[in-house]
């Protein structure tokens, strides 16, 4: 069966999720991987439909804009205190897509260039520092693996990877555990906890991934790299049914094009929700 890289990544990301933990949906890929995991191997996951609420309902990828819209999507309401309590208790997982990730798993969403005089001011660390000081699994993904995104050293550490500060202040708590990119799946078990290839996606060569990476990558010693398993037919059916308007593809587009497409999808989604709502009301009567 044909699949695209977004679907391959979602399936690979879903495999990393299990256990009775909250999974936040801050991005479309994050929401869809959580939902896929819940529908396949990990029914115990408590998947949220927004970054902060709506537990136990089907996530809608555009709800990552941060609010539920109808009673049908409301699920179990939570508070910000509930979210951070779950983080501090290590009962929380989230897929984070940083602008930069480095050799030792430090990540940046704050600024390109120096913080005080940035070449590009991005958004600010948000809740990443909380995650990287508490969780036992820290999950990152990057949709455009290149020497500009997978770098030797991040310009600003919004999230703590490995290094002297971690050794001194945190230990293993909140250490990076996985990176899924459009080229492969990685962990941080290389020399000194550096990035190492776990598997490459079908058709991706060692040379290609090395060329796309801003520092020398570690490969396993036996010279035979695993290939990332493709999504199953069941995986694809679930992903496509829960994201029929293909919000997941927007994360692979440039900024302005993604925004334009989202505006169209957002309106189509509203009309679909409205139709479903009226259908439900009819049934209740």
């Amino acid at each position: 069966m044909d699949y695209s890289v977004d679907e391959l990544m979602i399936a690979a990301m879903a495999r990393e999720l299990s256990g009775e933990v909250m999974v936040s949906s801050v991005t479309a890929l994050g929401a869809l991987s959580a939902y896929l995991a819940k529908r396949t191997h990990a029914p115990e996951l408590a998947v949220l439909s927004t970054p902060e609420s709506g537990m136990e309902v089907t996530p809608m990828p555009t709800l990552t804009l941060g609010q539920f819209m109808t009673d049908a999507q409301r699920g179990i309401p939570l508070t910000m205190e509930d979210i951070f309590d779950a983080i501090f208790l290590d009962r929380f997982r989230i897929w984070i897509n940083p602008a930069q990730i480095d050799r030792f798993g430090n990540v940046n969403i704050t600024a390109i260039g120096p913080w005080a005089s940035p070449r590009v001011a991005m958004v600010g660390s948000r809740g990443i520092p909380e995650d990287t000081s508490h969780l036992s699994a820290i999950l990152y993904y990057v949709t455009n693996h290149s020497p500009r995104t997978v770098v030797e050293r991040v310009d600003f550490r919004s999230g703590a990877g490995y290094g002297p500060d971690r050794e001194r202040l945190l230990g293993q708590r909140g250490a990076p555990t996985r990176l899924v990119t459009n080229l492969g799946v990685f962990d941080f078990n290389g020399p000194d906890h550096s990035l190492a290839v776990l598997s490459l996606h079908p058709g991706v060569s060692r040379e290609a991934v090395q060329e796309a990476t801003g520092f020398p990558l570690s490969f396993s010693d036996d010279g035979r790299m695993d290939e990332t398993p493709p999504p199953s037919e069941n995986d694809l059916a679930i992903i496509r049914a829960s994201d029929p308007l293909e919000v997941r593809k927007l994360e692979f587009l440039g900024g302005r094009e993604a925004a334009e497409r989202l505006v169209q999808i957002y309106e189509r989604e509203r009309q679909a929700m409205r139709a479903a709502l009226w259908q439900n009301r009819g049934r209740l009567r």
Binding site: T64, L65, G66, M80, F84, I87, T110, A111, W115, A116, S117, P118, R119, V120, A121, M122, V123, G124, S125, R126, G127, I128, P129, E130, L250, E251, G255, R256, A258, A259, L262
Partner: peptide
Amino acid sequence: GFEIMGLAPNFRRAREQQTTEFEEWTEF
């Protein structure tokens, strides 16, 4: 920020041109 719609344009300008004082905190 404006989520997937884009970066906040006036925030970005003020940060890059250093016309305003900023202090980065975190959500919690």
